[in-house]
Computed example of a mutant assay.
Amino acid sequence: MKPRRIAAAALSLTALLALTACGADSSAEASSSNTATLTIGDQAKTLQTIFAASDALKGAKYKVKWAEFEGAAPLYQAVQAGAADTGYSADLPALQALSGGVKIKNVAALKNDGTHVGIVVRKDSGIDSVKDLKGQKVVVSSAKGSIAEYLLANVLQQNGLNYKDVKVQYLLPTDAQAAFASGKVRIWATFGVYQAVGLEQGGKLLVDGADGRVSGYGFVNASDKALADPAKKAALSDFLGRLGTALKWTSTHQDAYAKAIQERNGADASVARTLASAAYGEVLPVDDGVNRTVQDVADLMNGIGVLEPNVDVAKSADTTLLH
């Protein structure tokens, strides 16, 4: 692995292993020593909340252990270290991990409308358009190669600006949130719950990822080591089917899902509703259309020096798990 690619999350391996050890096991019917155990990487309790609310793991013949992280960079460090079997992120963090030598394959695609990622500015910042970002410091969460960074790069390009026209600083979401709330950070490219909270803490949305400003794709990926284990591969294939069921449940039970986010993540009601409405809606095969769209993301980021070396997206997929 090339640590510089994904080390910006500032978590040591010891801390990663400690975080993983804190993950809770989901109930499964079988409990013998022969039962496969999947350690599923998660961010901000997203997948855990979906499965707990939908009860989609009921009857699984394997155990699920959750490895919880606040961003994609430390999650993929854990996968590389063998502390998690799977990753889960938007497209660009997965590309960054692949570029950095993390031995994973994309096993399923996820899709949403892109509104879960945005550039939030303080209402008193004087920033009213993307063109106003020229010469400004922009905090990007969580690390180099995040989906928020792709949104920033893409909208700058769409508005005739160069990526070098802004000064980028990388901060983990929790640190950026505290700095934004205090007014020390005025412009914040972020995602998910952090975007929603930023809007409640004196922020306004400058632009989000809708209308193709981000691809809207995310990935579930698995380590090469897990894929080489027949029991884990079979369990992961089943897990992906259950994830599809769970995501369909969230799209048809948004009020119940929002309540679960509120209860399990500590979000207030309005933030929970925002997150529920912006969630990934389905699990998709990693097909040619997905690969072409995400390859465009890779090529843009490679062109500005953020994704080096570039990634061949099609060659980074394992299409045998999702049926």
Rank of each mutant, 00 (worst) to 15 (best):
V139Q: 04
D175W: 01
K134N: 06
Q169K: 14
A179C: 04
N106H: 12
R122C: 00
V139G: 02
S129G: 09
G114H: 04
D128W: 05
V139L: 06
L98D: 02
K105Q: 09
A84E: 03
L75R: 05
Y163V: 10
G100L: 12
G135N: 11
E149H: 11
P74R: 02
Q169H: 13
K134V: 12
A153V: 11
H116Q: 12
Y163D: 07
L133A: 06
T115L: 00
K103M: 05
A178W: 00
Q96N: 04
A84R: 04
G118M: 09
K103F: 02
N154L: 01
E149Q: 15
K164G: 15
E68C: 01
K184T: 13
A148Y: 05
V139W: 04
K184M: 02
S146E: 02
K184W: 02
G135M: 01
A153S: 14
E68F: 05
K184P: 05
E68W: 07
L152G: 02
N154R: 14
G100H: 08
A81C: 09
A84K: 01
T115P: 04
I119H: 10
V79H: 07
D124Q: 10
K131N: 12
S99T: 03
G118Q: 11
F180I: 08
V120G: 05
V140F: 00
K137S: 12
R122Y: 02
V79T: 03
N154H: 15
G126V: 05
L133Q: 05
V140P: 03
L172M: 13
P173H: 07
A78F: 01
Q96I: 10
L151S: 09
Q177L: 13
I187A: 08
